[in-house]
Amino acid sequence: MPSVAPARPSKGIASFFGPPLLITIAVVYLALVLFVPAIAVFYEAFHKGIGEFLKAVGSPAFQSAVGLSLLATGVSVPLNTIFGLCAAWVIARNQFPGRSLLISLLDLPFAISPVVVGLMLVLLYGENGVWFGPTISSWGLKLIFSPPGIILATIVVTLPFVAREVMPVLEDAGPAEEEAAKTLGAKDWQIFWRVTLPNIRWGLLYGVLLTNARALGEFGAVSVVSGSIVGKTQTLPLFVEEAYKNYETQAAFGAASILAILAVITLILKEILERRTAQRGGH
């Protein structure tokens, strides 16, 4: 009987140059593409001192942009959380014709370029839009180039996150615990709060977090429907772009640094949530 030889590493590039080289390449690449730009944002924002930063951040245009961003996020996150929960439950717990089509449709906002999403909304709801636009303006309402349009665009681009994160968790948990609760006399809302929600909570939180991050950072779709009217229809990312174009470097980087801080917080929370999810899955 031939004895089993220990597996040798294959003589590819990795073994020829050795891991240190590959690690160096990866680190340099990441530094150039990610770390240095991120640090540059903070450097530009703060290198003239905290006073200049506060001045930029204190401007009415900036504050209105923060307000609108928070409004768009504050509306789209709860709406998409409720929608995402319902969609995930329907898809994970039921078999029906068109189920896989529905799953694909849910992914549509991911697949379509955000600019196209914005254009679709303008075409549908704009004053000169071909479809519902004229009807809406005849009611005296204005969706496009105003906050409602921005909220709508944010909702569309952040639609899939919660559903996408909750669906696999629900499928994984299976219906047995819910059925067990039912046989023990629990009503539907009791089953949801006492059994379903605790089972999906980490997946749900993760979905909400991603929705939140995308809602705050969305540029493309919002840029098309907003018209970028300073102090009225400018979100934080739009403010950054406009300030930068007008050579207001301090303001641009000030706002950018705030977006970057939010992104870092999101990343940390995401990491924590992923660990909790992995722990629960490991049981």
């Binding site: 615990e177 067990a180 039912k182 006399g185 629960r280 049981h283």
Partner: peptide, 19 residues
Amino acid sequence: DVRRRNIGFVFQHYALFKH
């Protein structure tokens, strides 16, 4: 309704509430 049949049900994979 299941809830009003007053039955006890035991599942193959236990279906205990994990949390």
